[in-house]
């Protein structure tokens, strides 16, 4: 992988983000409601509203608003939350950290569980085990997060009976056990769909590699079954699995919105829902941009991992 390739990829990401900002800006500018009135309240004097509009550049054409917004971002200034009267970076920053903890826990669980499940299903293809894993993964992909979350709550977080809290957040550096207790249900909810999807993908990749000419050749060289599986089959099935996981991160980022809402997890999703309800434009724009940037970067990271796993992949 050459440096030129990385530069080109990063440029492409910047282009993607530019398009995202334009699209988000376009969508949000159509939003009804006047930001200045929202901040000052309905009984503000027209003079005060006009003054604030000038301050927020609302009196300028949309492309000037867009450019000054982008210029602000480049200086690390995402504007001020209209509702909370705090800098957006401050509102979003802490929420981002909380969301990252939740998402990474879910992702780690998916990787640890899904890959072995997929491998197992492929090796036991056509048996009861394969069928059970297949059934489980189909069910997993058919349950929306809010249903999974509700069912988990009913069975595992009922008042006085269930072992887990029904919602809320404890920072891990304050109380690790408390954090674990709070993170399990939301992470399980987030992970289920991905788990199903990734294990199914690993199974189908693995089956394909198992049927390949070179695995047949490895068997016909008299190699032990263990070496055929662990050295010849598994590494070659992982690269596509990584690609799938990176695409699924988009799904994970969407799921986070619902899951945080249900489990009262103080992350980006909650901030976004709150901002949407209150038409808090700067926050909406910042969160959307952040999620898109994470997604684009995770795709780049996965491409780099794939290049490490598969020597044929050469990015020039």
């Amino acid at each position: 992988m050459s440096r030129g390739y990385l530069i080109r990829r990063l440029l492409a990401i910047i282009l993607v983000l530019a398009i995202v900002t334009l699209a988000v800006f376009a969508i949000t500018t159509i939003l009804p409601g006047n930001a200045a009135i929202m901040i000052l309240g309905e009984y503000a004097t027209p003079d005060a509203v006009a003054a604030l509009e000038r301050q927020l550049h609302l009196d300028q054409p949309w492309y000037m608003q867009y450019l000054s917004w982008v210029a602000g971002i480049l200086h690390g200034d995402f504007g001020t939350s209209l509702r909370l009267s705090q800098p957006v970076t401050q509102v979003v920053g802490e929420a981002f950290l909380n969301s990252a903890m939740l998402a990474l826990t879910a992702l780690a669980a998916v990787i640890i569980v899904a890959i072995p499940l997929g491998v197992l299903a492929a090796l036991k293809r056509g048996t009861v085990i394969d069928l059970a894993i297949g059934l489980f993964s189909y069910l997993g992909t058919a349950l929306p997060e809010f249903v999974t979350a509700t069912l988990l709550l009913v069975f595992l977080a009922a008042p006085n009976v269930g072992p887990f809290p029904a919602g809320g957040f404890v920072a891990p550096w304050e109380d690790l056990a408390g954090f674990a207790a709070h993170v399990i249900l939301p992470a399980a909810t987030l992970g289920l769909i991905l788990l199903a999807h990734v294990s199914r993908q690993v199974r189908s990749e693995m089956s394909e590699v198992l049927a390949s000419d070179y695995v047949r050749a490895a068997r016909l060289k008299g190699l032990s079954e263990r070496r055929v599986i662990w050295r010849h089959t598994l590494p070659n099935s992982l690269a596509p699995a990584v690609a799938v996981i990176s695409l699924d991160i988009g799904y994970l980022l969407g799921g986070i919105i619902v899951v945080e809402e249900i489990f009262a997890w103080p992350g980006l999703g909650r901030v976004l829902m709150y901002a949407l309800e209150n038409r808090d434009l700067p926050v909406i724009q910042a969160v959307t941009l952040l999620l898109a940037a994470i997604y684009a970067l995770s795709n780049l990271v996965s491409d780099i991992i794939i290049a490490k796993l598969d020597p044929r992949v050469r990015y020039a």
């Binding site: 070179y214 695995v215 050749a217 016909l220 010849h232 590494p235 070659n236 044929r312």
Partner: peptide, 16 residues
Amino acid sequence: VPMVFQDPSTSLNPTI
């Protein structure tokens, strides 16, 4: 009893 296959580009493992 070893075997030599038709297409060496598919009978060799690409990642080894």
